[in-house]
Amino acid sequence: MATGSQPRASEEPEEEEEEEEEAVTEEEEDCTFLPLVHDIIKCMDKDSQDVYQELNELKSKFQSMRKQINNMAGIELSPEQQQQHLQSLRVQVQTKNELLQKYKSLCMFEIPKD
């Protein structure tokens, strides 16, 4: 039993990663409007009454996409500006870490010679 459970434990992170990747691809696929436009064209070709429903779907998708974009965090900057900001934050953390380390390693009992 124990030998059987060990590989499972090692597989779990991979499964999680796969799930995340799948979620991301679903989100990315969901960003396209072409399938909906294609469905509308098909309905128009068939003179189907579903065209109005498809048109409403397309409209609601545009609205939901706008809402999603407005709620997304971190896209107020361009990627280059964001990278610069990220870099400066990393530098800040590093500098502060070094400063703390310097403070902690100070020799408190060093007597200055006159």
């Binding site: 997304m72 965090a73 971190g74 896209i75 964001q82």
Partner: peptide
């Protein structure tokens, strides 16, 4: 935008 969200 998604990658920027992660960076954020």
């Amino acid at each position: 935008a998604f990658s920027q969200g992660k960076v954020h």
